Amino acid sequence: MPSNKNVVFDVVGTLVSYDTLINTLETRLGDRLRAEGVKPSLLANTWIEVAEREYTYLSMSGKYVPFVQCMAQLFYRVLYLADIPDPRAFATDDDVQALMDAYNNLTMRPCAAECIRKLREAGFTVWALTAADLDGVAGLFAKAAVDMPKENLLSCDLYGVGKPDPLAYEPLLKQLSEGGAKPWFAAAHCWDVSAAQRKGFRGAYSLVLEKDKLPDLFGEIDITADTLPEMADGIIAASE
């Protein structure tokens, strides 16, 4: 049985940064992108945002496709959106594969381990709910030497429903609410944590990725903090 103190983390973008992907894009296509007036970091983030949208829309429409499959197929479309007139002449399939390899080998944020340690020392059980591949995400925790029991790591692929569909949060919310206490959902994507909070989780949001919480758009989140360790402190204090 789970404890009465539980925190569910989003992984990619929250505990894990996109730096490896951005750096690989810079290395392979950076000079050519800048020659077209496109910042590599902006293209990388636009690619991620477009992939998240199409992944979500496919899931909502009843055609669930794993996130990495969506992302890989959308790169050339994103080049079109950046006004690159002939994307398949500008970049090659080898470039796309190298970028996807980089995405599948992202690294933990330096402060992620401290955040998780603080919560565990305060008696919380830490979980993860990701849209990414389970084996790949397990490898990210292992590389960072952060223990994450296999049974505490869950993917939307298991349910065939993508976040932020309320059904994606439901199984874990139900499981972790059995002890009577509301579990926390923690993320650096405001759309993610706000959706989980509306479903019934307590919400914790870190500005480490998006920098702007936009309460008029997403609503108020229970806990908001600049860094992941500060977010952990907020969760602990609010749970006492």
Rank of each mutant, 00 (worst) to 15 (best):
M1T: 14
K5F: 06
N6D: 11
V11H: 04
V11F: 02
T14S: 09
L15P: 01
Y18V: 15
L21H: 06
N23A: 14
N23K: 14
T24S: 14
E26Y: 00
L29E: 10
D31Y: 04
D31H: 09
R34A: 09
A35H: 04
S41K: 08
S41T: 12
L43H: 09
A44H: 04
T46A: 08
E49I: 13
V50H: 07
V50P: 02
A51H: 09
A51P: 00
E52S: 11
R53Y: 15
Y55G: 04
M60E: 12
S61D: 04
Y64M: 07
V65D: 05
P66G: 04
F67V: 08
Q69L: 10
Q69K: 15
C70V: 15
M71F: 06
A72H: 11
Q73D: 15
Q73K: 11
L79V: 06
Y80C: 12
L81T: 13
P87E: 14
R88A: 14
A89K: 15
D94L: 13
D95L: 03
V96W: 08
Q97R: 15
A98Q: 13
M100K: 03
D101N: 11
A102L: 08
A102F: 01
Y103P: 04
Y103E: 12
N104W: 08
T107G: 05
M108H: 05
A112K: 01
A113P: 07
E114G: 02
C115I: 02
I116W: 00
R117N: 12
R120M: 04
A122D: 07
F124N: 06
V126M: 06
W127V: 01
A131I: 14
A132T: 12
D135L: 12
G136M: 01
A138E: 07
A138W: 03
F141P: 04
F141N: 02
A142C: 09
A142E: 14
K143T: 09
A144R: 02
D147N: 13
D147S: 15
P149E: 00
P149F: 00
E151R: 00
N152W: 01
S155R: 05
C156G: 07
D157M: 05
D157G: 00
L158D: 13
L158G: 09
Y159E: 14
G160V: 09
P164A: 09
P166I: 11
P166S: 08
A168K: 01
Y169F: 12
Y169V: 10
E170H: 10
E170W: 05
P171D: 03
P171F: 05
L176C: 05
S177H: 06
G179D: 13
G180K: 00
P183T: 06
P183H: 08
W184I: 00
F185S: 02
H189T: 02
C190K: 13
D192Y: 06
D192C: 00
A195H: 10
F201N: 04
R202V: 08
L207M: 10
V208H: 06
L209Y: 12
K211E: 10
L214A: 14
D216M: 10
D216R: 15
L217H: 14
F218V: 07
G219K: 01
E220R: 09
I223W: 06
T224F: 01
T224G: 07
D226Q: 03
L228K: 00
P229C: 05
P229V: 10
D233A: 11
D233E: 15
I235V: 02
I236A: 02
A237N: 11
A238T: 01
E240P: 11
E240A: 14
